[in-house]
Design a protein around this nucleic acid. Structure first.
Lengths: 241, 241
DNA sequence: ATTACTATTTCCCGAGTAA
DNA sequence: TTTACTCGGGAAATAGTAA
């Protein structure tokens, strides 16, 4: 990819107009306007691109026609392939942090049949009755927690009875210390801050790894490749900020 | 898209290294080498991209880490979406030309039950027993004939008996004068040049349109969007030239 | 080793203008 | 109307160098 900004913009404009299956009339003032530059620059750009074999030009009378060459199209295709390989692949997100003891609230929730049954159904394992609290270490990890949270789309419904109400929980499958299956839970009404994740697993992780408070652990999540649909939503969200 | 060449290249490099889910160490000499520019330029590029909010930098000791911001990622995603919309869409290819009379060879072939039956099966219509020969007018049309030929993947097998052999034919469905279904046939051993296409149709097109030799007609083909697989092949072919 | 400043050169843009 | 030249100003790249 050795295209400069204006050359790339011009290729995109031409490709949009199907200039790879037909010649398109394209005067220098019009190109200039579309590129947000001067007529002189547009002229120079076309001359240079023709020299580089990216486009072909033909002049019939007073109108000149432009067409993309195979090389021009391939520049776009190559860039597309490069972007596609980057964007349409799963993202491996790592969250590292240190174990700490909570107040047993996780254990209480998981002791409730309502939650336990849903987790069994939706995550595919019977959770050990307790959550492992992890305090995230780095700024990266804390940022990635937000990213993971956006993708945590497995919902465990809350409920309420005459005594109290129990909040909703969202979660996402993950891997613990590169080995064990687990899930990260995002509890709606948690009293932990944005630097904490709560882990559930079919096994007793503290036991298996002999974990004490302060021990470092690693939780890995594979996020799906950003599909166009989710991309568009994210971009809109980004713009609203 | 208002990224210049180097900024785009840098974003691509960073994205390849997953710099949107973790900070990546990236010194200015290394970046310079990857971009094919000087250390000073690399430094300037990083400073500018940081100012523009495309990246974030943190310095721990003597190593500096770079991470893509949401804005940086979205620049790539937007470009990807733009390219995707261009590349992954069907191409409407138009071939215009003038009708001329052949030597009745097409009619002879179509009178043979062997060909007629295969066309019925593979194109979904019973062909009128004759081909309409079209002499392509423009350079564009002649170039597009080659493009269409590459995509003509419906095969009608030839055969041979004791008297003579009958050549293979490849074809592709098309639309005649924006209305009628038809197909363009590419006959293996034709005596016509690269500026001629032969059309078959379930109806008698000469009759329906009152066509005389020299009359202008239009044949439209919808080519499938270039999939990655076919892209890679085309690029290799392009390189071999 | 780094990063990034200043100076010089090189390149690009746009105004004016010819054909 | 076009396209595309020359030319002057300014931006961007590299070299040298400091921190």
């Amino acid at each position: 990819m050795s295209l400069n900004k204006m050359h790339l913009k011009t290729l995109l404009l031409l490709a949009e107009k199907d200039a790879y299956v037909k010649s398109v009339s394209f005067t220098t003032p019009i190109l200039a306007q579309q590129l947000g530059t001067s007529q002189q620059s547009a002229s120079r750009i076309l001359i240079k691109m023709e020299k580089e074999g990216l486009i072909e030009r033909r002049i019939f009378g007073r109108i000149s026609y432009v067409k993309l060459t195979d090389k021009g199209i391939n520049e776009l295709k190559n860039l597309y392939i490069e972007l596609k390989s980057i964007i349409e692949r799963p993202m491996e997100v790592t969250l590292e942090g240190r174990v700490f003891s909570g107040m047993g609230e996780g254990a209480y929730y998981l002791s409730l049949e309502w939650y336990r049954r849903q987790i069994k159904e939706k995550f595919g394992f019977d959770p050990y009755p307790g959550t492992l609290n992890v305090n995230l270490l780095s700024k990266d990890a804390i940022e990635n927690r937000e990213l993971v949270k956006k993708h945590a789309d497995i919902e465990v419904n809350g409920y309420h009875n005459s005594l109290r109400s129990y909040g909703r929980v969202r979660g996402i499958p993950a891997t613990f210390n590169d080995k064990d299956i687990c899930a990260i839970l995002f509890i709606e009404r948690t009293h932990y801050g944005g630097n904490v994740i709560e882990i559930i697993s079919p096994i007793y992780l503290r036991g298996k790894y002999g974990l004490k408070d302060g021990d470092k652990v690693k939780v890995t999540v594979s996020l799906p490749p950003a599909s166009i649909k989710s991309l568009e939503r994210e971009i809109k969200i980004g713009m609203e900020k």
